[in-house]
Design a protein around this nucleic acid. Structure first.
Lengths: 207, 207
DNA sequence: CCTACCGATCGGTAGG
DNA sequence: CCTACCGATCGGTAGG
């Protein structure tokens, strides 16, 4: 079985390794400032050898960006389906968003900051996905306002500010940090739900 | 008076024009993905001509980054000086931060995202400034908590999340947008101060 | 501010 | 996965 016999107990293929290291470099230096030679030397092979596993530098970026987009959408759809309150939906969406980011800090940072180096039609496709995600998050906020669950507020502003807070995590989160992902989610959830809920019901309830 | 006789009523010098256009390109495409030829063609001159006004591509980046850092610090020091409450200090700091960003969206985005392309010792100097700014903002939050003005909370987390919300404005603010800078500041101020203040005193007071 | 140019480096290919 | 290499483009300089 050529191609499978040498993988052994560690499942990570050379292709996966390339993507992982590239993601870290793309986050640190940016896509354009990372050369295939940088990447190769980090892996320990020659630059030309990368092309045995990957068609181009951009293909790596495409893979990272669309994989992350898929992650975010998968969880969003799960949350949209359930018939919970909008408070609960928002709290859960914050929790899974924090979870995805803290489990994939580098990939999330690349997803957020390097997608503009995608060529067409990938850039347009990607942008559409991002806009749709924001729209659907905004719909939850809007509906919560419409039902009176949330205080009247600018859904567009709230959504953008929430996304900035969540996505900003990529810029400061460290695996050995003092704050656990669950605590981050709790804090962001409290902050925004406190801001969105009427005064008599300040503390969000769980079940 | 050579060098001054041709400036006429419009005060913008070629050097300023280069910096302005470069800033816009650096924001849109990133520093590394912007070539001096891109910049030149946007200005309408040859690439080599840029070097009559500017020593290098990086010098432009240095200028933008440190000018913005200076802007932010100038306002921070002003706010630290006055003997107001921490609530009022935080609200004012948010207001001036929003103001600087909305008046310099491109420069702020470059300041936030492209500084890592600075070479040494500029990168280290810059990073030190950013960390000091965050530290001093955090001190205001900490002091507000210590005096009992703010509810007990994680000052580090609050500061980072506030900065993410503020800096995120560069990613969505448009001059013709529906939300005016004053309204943005008001909303962010309300959100965070509501989150920071004790329940019996939910609405922050002004004078 | 332009023409003419330089050495370095880039992403990527051929052929093994 | 490597050696050897290609054309394109990069930041920047010389000299006017």
């Amino acid at each position: 079985m050529p191609g499978t016999e040498n993988q052994g107990p560690v499942k990570i293929s050379r292709k996966d390794q390339i993507e992982t290291i590239a993601t870290a470099l793309f986050k640190e230096r940016g896509f354009s400032a990372t050369s295939m030679r940088d990447l190769a030397s980090e892996i320990g092979i020659e630059a030309a050898s990368i092309y045995a596993h990957v068609r181009s530098k951009e293909e790596i970026l495409q893979s990272v960006c669309f994989k992350m987009a898929h992650e975010f959408f998968k969880e969003l759809e799960q949350i949209e389906k359930q018939a919970d309150t909008h408070t609960e939906k928002l709290r859960q969406l914050i929790a899974v968003h924090v979870n995805i980011i803290t489990r994939n800090v580098a990939a999330s940072a690349v997803f957020l900051n390097e997608w503009r180096h995608l060529s067409e039609p990938y850039a347009s496709d990607f942008l559409q996905l991002r806009e749709q995600y924001e729209q659907r998050l905004r719909a939850i906020v809007r509906q919560g306002i419409a039902t009176g669950e949330f205080v009247p507020s600018d859904a567009r502003f709230v959504t953008r500010t929430l996304l900035s807070s969540l996505n900003g995590i990529t810029q400061w989160y460290k695996l050995d940090g003092e704050l656990l992902p669950e605590a981050i989610a709790q804090n962001i959830g409290d902050l925004f739900l406190k801001g969105l809920m009427s005064h008599k019901d300040d503390r969000p309830k769980y079940h």
